[in-house]
């Protein structure tokens, strides 16, 4: 019995998230029979591919007790830069590599400013957001279409899923799932991952224990930058265009997904798997609103905001109780 209790306590938020996802999806299925089709379920992954990638990077940052508000700007910048470079007939593989390197550089630059110059993370990353969006508009003020062969191939090839008829998945969708597994393994079973958790719990004591705080912090922000750039590539593949106004307020969606996934905003508590379900819950709500048809797009914004609020509330209650026991 105590074992079960302990299991419930350590994995409570994650289990709650999974339960909520199942309940929300079943309610959705009852309301709109279309949601029972396998393709609609797979669409959750397809439509939220870039959000999932961004949220995975964000989870690491939040676990460390930081925050990265620059992700949506990075996605927009990546999409525009990709489109602009492809227009100049640069090889697509090279473009992708360049984008990833750009993401890592911007991320590590922000990490360095946060760590060495002791500026609050949200100020630096907020400025990163405005900087990236501004730069995207400097590159092009209008939307650029991508007509590259490789990008079109990646965007339009559907892989059928075995055992389900008429259900398929696109190549970029798989990126997020692979990334999720990698980050899960790293965060749970590596020295780096444990350092991230330690910093999130108490940076001072992590430093006193002799952990490489500076390196880990900068690396986590670099990973977040890398994830945003990757998400930007996936985003530009799925839309086959680049524009500085894309992915507006996606940082909020990502933070919401992370929080709904059971990661504490104070850091040190959480799980990458929960983030996946956070993204899925987010996606389910959006698709319910879309299927309804009478509710308009701004309801999603309000809905996500309210949901985040509720989860932060539940979380703080949960962790307060946990501390007491």
């Amino acid at each position: 019995m105590p074992k079960i209790k302990k299991f419930l306590f350590t994995n409570g938020p994650l289990l709650a998230t999974i339960l909520i996802f199942i309940v929300v999806y079943i309610i959705g299925g009852q309301l709109y029979p279309a949601m029972k089709k396998p393709q609609v379920f797979v669409n959750l992954f397809i439509n939220n591919a870039s959000l999932l990638i961004v949220s995975i990077g964000m989870t690491l940052v939040v676990l460390m007790g930081g925050i990265d508000l620059s992700v949506s700007g990075m996605i927009a910048l990546t999409s525009v830069a990709t489109a602009a470079l492809l227009q100049l007939n640069v090889h697509p593989i090279l473009v992708m590599l360049l984008m990833l390197i750009m993401g890592i550089i911007l991320g590590s630059a922000m990490g360095c400013i946060i760590h060495y110059l002791k500026v609050e993370a949200f100020v630096v990353t907020l400025m990163g957001l405005f900087f990236a969006r501004g730069m995207a508009f400097v590159i092009s003020r209008t939307s650029i279409t991508i007509s590259d062969e490789l990008y079109r191939y990646l965007a339009l090839t559907k892989i059928p899923i075995p055992f389900f008829d008429n259900a398929g998945i696109y190549i970029p969708t798989l990126v997020g799932i692979v990334l999720l597994i990698i980050v899960y393994v790293i965060s749970r079973f590596s020295y780096f991952g444990r350092t991230v958790f330690a910093i999130g719990n108490n940076e001072q004591s992590a430093l006193l224990m002799g952990m490489p705080v500076a390196r880990t912090k900068i690396m986590v922000y670099s990973i977040s930058g890398f994830c945003s750039a990757l998400a930007g590539i996936v985003f530009s593949i799925s839309l086959l265009s680049g524009f500085g106004g894309y992915a507006q307020s996606m940082e909020m969606d990502a933070i919401a997904s992370v929080v709904i996934g059971g990661t504490a905003l104070t850091g040190g508590q959480g799980n990458v798997i929960g983030t996946l379900f956070g993204v899925l819950i987010n996606g389910t709500i959006v698709s319910i609103l879309q299927l309804n048809g009478t509710l308009t797009s701004w309801w999603t914004r309000i809905g996500v905001g309210i949901l985040t609020l509720i989860f932060i509330g539940v979380q703080s209650l949960f962790y307060i109780r946990k501390k007491r026991t």
Binding site: F131, R133, M135, V138
Partner: peptide, 10 residues
């Protein structure tokens, strides 16, 4: 242009 200004301000 206004949007480029954003980057400069940041």
């Amino acid at each position: 242009p206004a949007n480029a200004l954003m980057a400069a301000k940041a």
